Simulated scan of single mutants.
Amino acid sequence: MTRFTTAATAGHVFFELAAGVGMPLASVLGPFTAATAWAAGTWTAWCAAATRPARDDPVFAVLDSISFAAVIGHLAGWPKRRTRLGTPWLTDCEGPGPRLMPYYNPILYISGTAAAAAVLLENRSVPRRLPLLSLPLVPLLVVAQRAEHRRLKAIAEAHPAWWNRRLLATARSGTERRGWHPD
């Protein structure tokens, strides 16, 4: 499950890049360096998760729980509606726009479900409360997501490029609902 979490989280991050809204850390490191760091981190975690000894369980428990906290942060911190099942369905999140949100939501739910399963089913040598320590990260991750989004929009306005094209279009058209983002 940790490998699946790693792959699903990478899918989420690289979907954002392909969608033209950037990716985490792109506003700080630049898109190439951020993508390289994410790819290297994903590959490292993927390989290590396949052959890890039990002594590495705490590292993977933290990795899985942070991935889960990031998904909770998305669902808690961005505009949403409720589905018929009562689950949150994001209507906007970091700029993909209404056309891509039907794809973004399942990607988010897949990565969150994988992370939750990894937290619950793997890393058995770790105290069960260790993953709970990541829950206080949720509000911090919401703040970080919003700050990254603001920086990426500013970069898109100043330096339009392929990797931030959707943010530029959103910023110029004014289609974002400002009331949803208490920046």
Rank of each mutant, 00 (worst) to 15 (best):
2 T>I: 13
2 T>Q: 02
182 P>R: 15
18 A>M: 12
83 T>W: 00
146 R>W: 06
171 A>R: 12
134 S>Q: 03
154 A>E: 08
84 R>M: 08
5 T>Y: 00
93 C>W: 03
67 S>C: 14
128 R>G: 07
115 A>N: 02
25 L>S: 12
168 L>N: 05
66 I>D: 01
180 W>Q: 14
13 V>E: 04
156 A>V: 05
8 A>L: 02
160 P>M: 08
161 A>W: 05
128 R>S: 12
127 P>R: 14
72 I>D: 02
178 R>K: 12
121 L>C: 12
65 S>C: 04
78 W>F: 14
124 R>W: 04
25 L>T: 12
167 L>R: 06
180 W>C: 13
76 A>F: 07
147 A>N: 11
61 A>T: 09
143 V>Q: 13
27 S>C: 13
52 R>C: 03
19 A>T: 08
98 P>G: 14
35 A>T: 11
60 F>P: 03
58 P>Y: 01
170 T>H: 07
94 E>G: 09
36 T>W: 04
95 G>F: 00
173 S>P: 05
177 R>W: 08
92 D>W: 02
11 G>N: 05
161 A>S: 15
147 A>M: 07
152 L>R: 12
50 A>F: 01
158 A>K: 15
146 R>C: 05
71 V>F: 00
5 T>N: 01
180 W>F: 14
151 R>A: 14
53 P>K: 14
37 A>P: 04
178 R>Q: 14
177 R>I: 15
158 A>G: 09
15 F>C: 06
92 D>T: 08
